[in-house]
Design a protein around this nucleic acid. Structure first.
Length: 673
DNA sequence: TGTAACTCCCCTCCG
DNA sequence: GGGAGTTACA
């Protein structure tokens, strides 16, 4: 048995960490040491002689898994990280990927499949859509994103399409038959191209376990399965766990129903609520001692979640004791909110709470735009999590497409994208070129046989030479070298295609740099699809110790994190709850849990801000909007907060003029009247 | 056949 | 504010 020193745990945490075999459910309120407990359980299992390579640890993000293993390994001192390195840790999707590459061959799956990210999947959906041509009905067919989310929700919730449409996409219900045909065609398109989308990773895993032999092998392969953030798993994921544990019942799940915020991805809160019924003999342990926040913050968050009708009742108690009441700040305008936040950030910074210990949270990524401009103007370094992904930027997708073609020449999506970059190549030539390549059995030399205007033919030949020289056996010098060679071809195109080539080239530099850490193209492509960098600066590598930056994050991306100071901005009706999520009571309840998650991130200072008045251009039809405070903090809850009101101090010179605006308007009209 | 300019419509949150 | 579809023109 390895040398083992467990962190100091309280009695409830210790019970969870050292529970025996069989199903275990830990209901862990916000800040109750969930990570610590799960990490301790991993360490405890290993200390009991369980082989780490026979433990599966499923987490919500890759970061969470790394953090968990880092903490678990501490229990074993210096040998820890080496000892626990063989644990199967990661998200459901990444573990599925690993299992399918190992065991997929048994059911005839090509182990060299490519993983499609959401945008690729949408594009493929679009291709199927065009091939089917549903335009005859006169009315517009749902757009590709909508089609993909309908598809994805059906798959992940295991609900029939009719029900999914009625409940979540009622405006698409008339297209039910067409959507069925589309989904069939989309599935075939994926098979032809040897690609799997995110949902396929889970689906194939689930169906792999439908084979009796494989199910037995996989049950026996893992002595223990542990799942974090169980409240955010969906029906398909729960079914996978059922099949993974049909023979061996050792399953530990941890979560908090009050923090379930992923129903848009078909998360089923019922998974955690009904776990004891679905897994008879479950040991249930509740963690209610909060180590994160001061009592006044908990008083407020307890009251907020208390208003939720369906939940496991629990009351969090703080060990941190007293502190300032959370502040509820009414701002006249968005500018006042920005001013307040920026000034407070600097104030806390001066008093010893550095930028790293502060975070600004928003419901939706773009609502931080105004604030970000001010942070930049004042030279306050920050990192943004959530919202537009690095990998969605056009130039990154371009470069990744080159790599994907090298890896899988049948990937027509990627090939088309590259072809369209060439001057003079539109949909028609790209289509012919793609067909020629696939007729040639995936040999890009076929590009040279295309008839097109001379300059286009020359470009095609150049591209063909580049690709074949990079795919030649024995020439691969690693992904970074591939990227370097691709860029000698692609960089000039960036100049022509984009107005701002320089920042884009810097992104490409970063991509090239991180790629050097990967031993193969396939690994690089898959890892980037399954664990995309959360913010651009993620790519810059671990920052040095004295770097200090403020966090700006969506509430969703803030899950599991904590800061001394938290500012929740735009807590106004229409934004939180989002006006797009007020369709039914369940959706409103999820918005309430979002507010709860946001507020429970704070350790010592919590500021909830809501501007009263918005000036909006473009995105909304009206030019301004008067908002009220979020309905989740009704009047009777205000006693939990310290109330404040902010307006920007504008000093107007007091001059008494006799001229009125109406006079000026009159004279202006005089010009043409 | 490709491209630029224009219109219309819809949008959140993420692996 | 941006993606997708349409139209006019090179």
């Amino acid at each position: 048995m390895p040398e083992f020193q467990i962190d100091d745990l309280n009695p409830e945490q210790l019970r969870a960490a050292s529970a025996g075999n069989g199903p275990v459910l830990a209901i862990a309120g916000a800040g109750t040491g969930k990570t610590k407990t799960l990490a301790a359980r991993v360490a405890w299992l290993v200390s009991q002689g369980i082989d780490p390579s026979r433990i599966m640890l499923l987490t919500f993000t890759r970061r969470a898994s790394d953090e968990m293993l880092r903490r678990a390994s501490r229990a074993f001192g210096e040998a820890g990280s080496c000892l626990l390195g063989s644990i199967w840790g990661g998200t459901f999707h990444s573990v599925a990927n690993r299992l399918l590459r190992t065991y997929g061959g048994a059911i005839g799956l090509d182990p060299n499949f490519t993983v499609l990210d959401q945008l690729d999947a949408e594009d493929l959906m679009d291709i199927s859509l065009h091939n089917l041509d549903f335009s005859s009905k006169g009315k517009r067919f749902p757009r590709k994103q909508t089609c993909l989310s309908i598809y994805s929700r059906c798959v992940n919730s295991a609900d029939p399409i009719h029900h999914t449409l009625a409940a979540f996409f009622p405006w698409c219900i008339e297209w039910e038959q067409e959507l069925r045909r589309l989904f069939t065609s989309y599935t075939e398109a994926k098979q032809e191209r040897h690609v799997l989308d995110y949902d396929d990773l889970l689906l194939y895993w689930f169906h792999l376990l439908g084979d009796e032999t494989l199910a037995r092998i996989l049950n026996e392969r893992f002595d223990h399965i542990l799942v974090d953030e169980y409240q955010d798993t969906n029906r398909l994921q729960a079914s996978i766990l059922h099949r993974m544990r049909s023979l061996n019942r050792n399953l530990t799940v941890v979560g908090d129903d009050a923090q379930s915020i992923y129903s848009f991805r078909a998360a089923a809160i019922g998974n955690i609520l009904n776990f004891p019924a679905e897994f008879p003999g479950t040991t249930v342990i509740a963690l209610e001692t909060n180590y994160r926040s001061t009592q006044p913050i908990l008083d407020a968050t307890n009251r907020i979640i208390e208003l939720s009708p369906r939940r496991h009742a629990k009351e969090l108690r703080s060990v941190k004791g007293e502190g300032p009441k959370p502040a509820l700040i009414t701002c006249e305008r968005e500018e006042d909110q920005t001013d307040f936040v920026v000034e407070k950030v600097l104030e806390h910074n001066e008093h010893g709470l550095g930028l790293r210990r502060q975070a600004i949270l928003v419901r939706t990524a773009y609502w931080s735009d105004h604030l970000e401009i001010e942070l930049t103007r004042r030279n306050i370094p920050y990192r943004k999590y959530g919202g537009l992904k690095f990998l969605e930027a056009a130039h990154i997708k371009d470069l990744m497409s080159f790599l994907r073609v090298l890896e899988n020449p049948r990937d027509q999506l990627a090939l088309t994208r590259i072809l369209r970059l060439l001057e003079g190549v539109g949909p028609a030539i790209a289509k012919r070129a793609c067909e020629a390549v696939s007729e040639f059995g995936g040999d890009v030399a076929a590009l040279k046989s295309i008839t097109a205007p001379a300059p286009v033919e020359a470009e095609l030949a150049k591209l063909a030479n580049l690709i074949s020289s990079l795919t030649m056996k024995g020439t691969s010098g690693g992904v970074a070298l591939d990227i370097e060679r691709i860029r000698s071809f692609y960089d000039p195109l960036v100049e022509r295609l984009y107005e701002n080539p320089d920042p884009r080239k810097r992104d490409l530099d970063q991509l090239e740099q991180i790629s050097s850490a990967y031993s193969s193209r396939q690994l690089f492509l898959t890892e980037l699809a399954l664990d995309p960098p959360q913010s651009t600066s993620d790519l810059a590598g671990p920052p040095s110790k004295d770097d200090d930056w403020l966090t700006v994050s969506t509430i969703h991306s803030a899950k599991g994190c904590e800061w001394d100071v938290v500012y929740l901005i735009h807590a106004s009706d229409g934004i939180l709850p989002s006006d797009l999520a007020t369709g039914d009571a369940d959706q409103i309840e999820e918005e309430r849990r979002l507010l709860y998650v946001a507020c429970t991130r704070a350790k010592r200072y919590l500021y909830v801000l809501h501007p009263l008045r918005y000036y909006l251009k473009g995105r909304h039809s009206h030019s301004h909007l008067y908002s009220q405070l979020t309905r989740f903090i009704p009047h009777e809850l205000k006693s939990c907060f310290q109330l404040d009101r902010r307006t920007r101090a504008v000093s107007e010179p007091q001059i008494a003029a006799s001229l009125r605006v109406s006079d000026i308007q009159k004279s202006i009209r005089g010009i043409w009247e």
